[in-house]
Amino acid sequence: MTTALMFSGQGAQKVGMGKDLYENSEIARALYDKADEILGWKITDLSFEGPQEALTETKVCQVALFVHGYAVYEIMKAQGKLGDVKVAMGLSLGEVTAYTAAGVFDFETGLKVVAERARLMQEACEATNGSMAAVIGVERDVVAAFCEEMDVEMANLNCPGQIVISGEASKIAAAVEAGKERGFRRVMPLDVAGAYHSRLMMPAREGFAAYLAEVEFKAPQFTVFTNTTGKEVSEPNDLREALVKQVVSSVLWEDCLVNAAAGGVDLFWELGVGGVLKGQVKRTNKDWANAAFETWADLEA
């Protein structure tokens, strides 16, 4: 078997995430305690106890998902379960977790990268009036033309029939109404803080580029795919550019899945929260083998 690891993106977070890992695994405990120390605030408290409103903040949830996903990875690695892993990839923020698992940089560096990314994106959210909406059951080319007409952007192409659009709040509201009038199967506004993966994130992109210019990137030990193209990327400078561009670019997650399978992956493992990515694998191709690992019970099995 050739296995691909998948890491969660923003929106998957939930109160209690990682608590049982911390209580049962010395590996997880060390990573969480290290994260608290580096951050100067307690990601443990917010992950384990909430409240949900605080955990959902961009600057918090991105860090929480990174630490959780990487803790699951390190536990599984220590258990000897990752011998068949050849590919790592992540949805949006999860791409940083994938790079960390692949050895592009160490945990401490990856944590700092995520924290800065999240801080800059939250600033951009607060400085703009952006929103997002999910478009369900509509073909990609139809949504692309619709976005051009409505002056919004395709933010996430998650799997067949599941696309998220992003832009100024008034334009997203207009797009939701227009989509309903045209008989789109389902168009629904999302409860998000801003217009991620759109031009409204340009200030965050610029700040992130400056920050990453000072970070050393190494060649990945696994094959990694970038959200910006859906294709394999391996050169350190290309990895850096992909992370910068991703802040304002469409997340081509379906393309990542399809290209990984075409490259020989026959088992997809989600190391994250809520089984969201596992569900997207199933909707992309119901014949692809998949599993999700989130809790200590999952890892003991």
Rank of each mutant, 00 (worst) to 15 (best):
V138T: 15
R119F: 04
I172Q: 07
N158L: 04
A178C: 06
N129A: 15
Q162E: 13
K171M: 02
A174T: 07
E139V: 00
A127W: 09
V138C: 06
A133E: 08
V164K: 10
K171N: 00
N156L: 02
L111G: 06
E123H: 11
V135S: 11
C125M: 12
R117T: 05
M154K: 05
V176S: 04
S170E: 11
C159V: 10
I165C: 01
L111E: 07
I172T: 01
L120G: 10
A169Y: 03
F184N: 14
K112E: 11
M121T: 06
M121E: 02
N158D: 03
G130K: 12
R119W: 08
M132C: 10
R182Q: 14
V152G: 00
G183K: 10
A178I: 03
E148R: 12
N158Q: 09
E177D: 13
R182P: 00
G161I: 00
V143L: 13
N156S: 02
A118K: 12
V143Q: 14
M150E: 12
N129D: 14
V142R: 13
V142N: 11
L111N: 09
E177P: 01
A145D: 13
D141A: 13
V176M: 00
K171A: 01
E149D: 13
I165P: 00
S131E: 15
E148N: 12
E149T: 01
L120N: 14
Q122C: 05
G179A: 08
G167T: 06
Q162K: 13
N158S: 03
A144W: 12
E153Q: 14
A124K: 13
G183W: 05
R119D: 10
M154Q: 13
R119S: 10
A173S: 14
M150Q: 15
A174G: 06
A127N: 12
Q162I: 02
P160T: 01
A169F: 01
C159F: 01
V113M: 11
A173E: 15
V135G: 07
I163S: 06
T128W: 00
A134P: 08
G183A: 09
E181I: 03
D151G: 00
E139K: 12
V152S: 01
N129M: 12
A118E: 09
A173K: 15
T128F: 06
N158E: 06
A124D: 09
R182I: 02
R140E: 15
E168W: 01
F146G: 10
R119Y: 08
G167R: 02
E149Y: 00
A174D: 10
E149R: 08
G137Y: 07
F184R: 15
A134N: 14
V143P: 15
C147E: 05
